Amino acid sequence: MARVLNRLESYYDAVPRSAARAEELGPLTLFVREGEGWPYYARPALGYAGDVSAAEVDRVRARQRELGAPEAFEWVAETTPGLRAAVEASGLTVHEHPLMVLEGEGLAVPEPEGVTVRMVDAGDPVLASAVAAPYAAFGAEPAPTASDQVAARLTAGLTRLAAALDASGTALAAGQHQPVGAVSEVVGVGTLPDARRRGLGLAVTAALVADARSRGVELVFLSATDADVARLYGRLGFRTVATALIAEA
């Protein structure tokens, strides 16, 4: 399991660098978004598993405030066990999420009725709908340039997008995976509220896994919202190997 966690640490350090600059602040790395898009966070420097002080966390938080970035940290509990106490001593709230991996092909899931589940590319007419669906699933509005940003990442090979479409071509659910070498993370899978409980999220995730495997990805992983959602992903063959922690002000 240590080998899997080490591969995930390398991935976590690499994936933000396609759209952010890294500032090394002692034992922590702060990723600063270049241009528009979701803001990034701070996390342990690659290879660092020692203790972190509350003062070192405070230093990063001060830099985040200076930059107008969210005061947020993400890390794996089992890899950097000493960080949580420092983050909580600094006054942040820590949320736990099951960290799950899939090393095989993935288990088959029923094909949802009345929808088409497929990959979406940069020039696809359903792109805007597929980008908007996860935002709506979580009660948010996409930025005006969200589709353009995703299209650019699709063209660059930095992300892959799958959607479950109704007969009119409207996305009812969508999600992405972000490959870096032989590792990829499934992210942002969301289903419109009135289309839930039809297996659309699982079908989208299965399509993302199949696409990742077809591109040579060996290790697919994700962070589930909670234990109930983790059980759903378990139906695809994902298993919990650790705990992803997210700290926010």
Rank of each mutant, 00 (worst) to 15 (best):
A136L: 14
V117P: 02
V183L: 08
Q149M: 14
T170Q: 10
R235D: 03
V229P: 00
D228E: 10
R196C: 04
D211I: 00
L200V: 11
T159I: 12
V150L: 11
V187G: 05
R213L: 15
V120D: 09
A182Q: 14
A143P: 11
R153D: 14
L158I: 01
A164F: 13
M119S: 13
S184N: 10
T205P: 05
R213E: 11
G216W: 11
T145R: 02
V209E: 13
P134K: 03
A207L: 07
S223P: 01
R196N: 05
T116C: 00
T145M: 01
R213P: 10
F138L: 01
V150C: 06
V131P: 02
R235S: 04
L232A: 03
R118S: 09
L192D: 14
A137K: 06
P134G: 01
V120C: 06
S223M: 14
E141N: 01
R196W: 12
L245A: 10
T205G: 11
R235K: 13
L154S: 06
S129G: 12
D226H: 04
A136C: 02
Q149G: 12
A130G: 09
R197L: 08
A247N: 02
L158F: 00
G201T: 03
A182G: 01
V186P: 05
R215W: 07
R215N: 13
D228P: 00
I246Q: 04
S168G: 09
G237K: 03
L232V: 06
Q176Y: 02
T116P: 00
D211P: 08
L245M: 14
Q149D: 13
V115L: 11
S223N: 14
G181Q: 02
G175D: 06
L222C: 12
P125W: 07
A171R: 01
A162M: 14
S214W: 15
R213Q: 13
V209F: 13
Y233T: 12
A244E: 03
A151P: 07
E141L: 05
P179K: 10
P125G: 05
G216Q: 05
L127W: 07
V117E: 11
L127G: 00
R196F: 06
A210I: 09
G175F: 06
G188D: 13
R196M: 07
R118W: 08
G123D: 14
A167D: 15
F221P: 00
V209S: 14
P193F: 06
E218P: 01
L222T: 11
T191C: 08
V180L: 04
E218D: 15
L219R: 08
A122R: 02
A210L: 14
A156E: 10
L202P: 04
V183W: 02
